[in-house]
Write a protein that binds this DNA or RNA. Structure first.
Lengths: 126, 126
DNA sequence: GTAACTAGTTACCTGATGGAAACTAGTTAC
DNA sequence: GTAACTAGTTTCCATCAGGTAACTAGTTAC
């Protein structure tokens, strides 16, 4: 069958997916955003949420997210100096995408744990 | 305010997001899946869609996607040997996520290009 | 024999990703 | 002075994602 009629549409989608991926790609960005959907947080609080992130990576990724205007950084001149990170409207606009991602993550895990137990004799290759 | 009540929920979401990301992370997996939403395709056809992918990466990522049961591979013993790749139901279940990803990619791009121009009241959005 | 089609594989290389640990800096407490 | 709290930064290092180019293999055509 020809799917040539969908060629430009396909190319447009490929471009859009790349635009989005460029911003949210990486091991830590989505986790950081998920953490911030639970309220504004300080550096140390995000670090507590995402237990295995190093301060270097957290700092680096927060900067990237701030540059892309997904989060905001507010410095409070309180006694030991605190910094609050928050989602911007643009960051918050990831909400639907995040919901789908999380739902699919759960779906995928249940599919895998349910199906991995099944008959392995059909395996064609290893 | 306190977000301690959401602590376990946050951790659950972080786990789900990691599960999902593990599978779809990378430069090429989403593009490959997007390409396959436009119909079953052969190796060379996907390569034509995603112009700058190398045969090595395409082969490698197709294998990963097949292992994770997102796509299927069918060998046809025709004259120059053709192979058809298709989304499995699990791969197709990414549809909602993809839609949100694409929509957000477009939204993000328009936000960025719109705001960089510094004409907020004129460039409302198209 | 050579070339071209199919669908890849292999070897080699580079630059980005990410981790560990030590260090900075300002303030409070002792 | 030392320690502990905040929020990072810096350096050094290893791994890995990804790119390039050449090569395999089976068939058709010349």
């Amino acid at each position: 069958m020809e799917h040539t009629y969908g060629k430009e549409a396909c190319q447009a989608k490929l471009r859009a997916s790349r635009d989005a991926l460029e911003v949210i790609q990486g091991k830590w960005r989505i986790p950081i955003i998920v953490s911030l959907t639970y309220g504004n947080k300080r550096f140390g609080e995000i670090k507590k949420d995402i237990e295995d992130i190093s301060p270097k990576m957290l700092s680096q990724e927060l900067k990237e997210l701030e540059m892309n205007k997904l989060i905001s950084r507010t410095l409070y001149d309180s006694m030991p100096v605190t910094v609050e990170y928050a989602l911007t409207p643009l960051g918050a606009s990831l909400n639907n995408l995040l919901q789908e991602l999380l739902q699919w993550g759960i779906h995928f895990r249940s599919e895998m744990t349910g199906k991995e137990m099944k008959v392995p004799e059909l395996a064609e290759h290893d």
